[in-house]
Design a protein around this nucleic acid. Sequence first.
DNA 1: GATAAAAATGAACATACGTTTATTTCGGTC
DNA 2: GACCGAAATAAACGTATGTTCATTTTTATC
Lengths: 188, 188
Amino acid sequence: MAAIREAGLALIHAHGYEAMSLRELAREVGLTAGALYNHIDNKQTLLFDLIDEHMDQVLAHLEEALAVDADPRGRMADFVRFHLLYHIDHRLEVFIGHSELRSLTPENRDVILAKRRLYEDRVTAVIEDGVRGGLFAVADSRVAAYGILAMLTGVCTWFDPRGRLDADAVIRIYTDMVLKGLAAPSRP
Amino acid sequence: MAAIREAGLALIHAHGYEAMSLRELAREVGLTAGALYNHIDNKQTLLFDLIDEHMDQVLAHLEEALAVDADPRGRMADFVRFHLLYHIDHRLEVFIGHSELRSLTPENRDVILAKRRLYEDRVTAVIEDGVRGGLFAVADSRVAAYGILAMLTGVCTWFDPRGRLDADAVIRIYTDMVLKGLAAPSRP
DNA sequence: GATAAAAATGAACATACGTTTATTTCGGTC
DNA sequence: GACCGAAATAAACGTATGTTCATTTTTATC
């Protein structure tokens, strides 16, 4: 049931997974605690499903976003736009996907980390493409990818849709910084 | 008592503030639950003190790090080195300082956010200096500061002291990306 | 070695936890 | 309108929560 997933997301975000109570979640969706178990397996599976489905979604949308452009600079710009827009729209999932890795079963955590590595691999590959073509120059493509990912994901902590800057302005600023940060020194 | 603060840090990191138990904290330092109250005011104040003292420390060390160099490029490089080294050494505090803002009293949260703003202001000022001098070119110094801060702070989530790269290598890579990302187009 | 201050104890407070279970209610199909 | 599977209920399981308090133990000063 979608209402349970949504309320669960909000409650985990507000209290942390361990401290969030299934009784409060049930109350929030108009059920009693026991009745929840007609819709979820247990608390741990609820957390895992929330994060896992988010990972599947973001991976699928990433493929779409990267399929548009052939040039590494264009692909990187497409990626920056996609990552910012998607993460602005899914702040709770992103927060939980990082802070509650600790609460996952080792097996469940491994599943999520493998999917996250896939995401990082795709970004790293774009950078490596650019390096091979002489457009980018970085000492380590993977660390560069980590840096860019952290920088972009950081919008989740401060972006306000009704703030001084709208999403497009942020995208312009970040795209400029990322492309300049990766760029090879221009030939004279 | 330092042992309480250290164990509290580890327990909050492992379970989240709400779910961490004072009884377990007491057990960890060889006390009974009630005896804890000879050393701390209450659970909330323990959390606040942990974060607040971290903020004070990082602010003080930032001032030292920024006092060395006059040139904006040098100051930014100094900042990148400092921020990376300090955050690598204080991963638990950094994690809690972000993820457990939600668990602070509104008044306590405001205190922390004000200190964080001071930190951001200092970085923003360095960027603005560079922009004024024509060395840097960014559309918005504050957003650029947010981006750089998130990028650097991200090391906390993946850096492994015994991994493929040591801290100095990471510092070189990030310093290069940051300075290039901020740089004004070179004059012909 | 008495004394005073500081620290530790264990019990108590009312309340909450995730999950299971036997039982009742609900929705929709013949 | 009987029937059946799905969904909801209330109660129960043993255990845990932050904090207070009267009492006992430890520590250090003269």
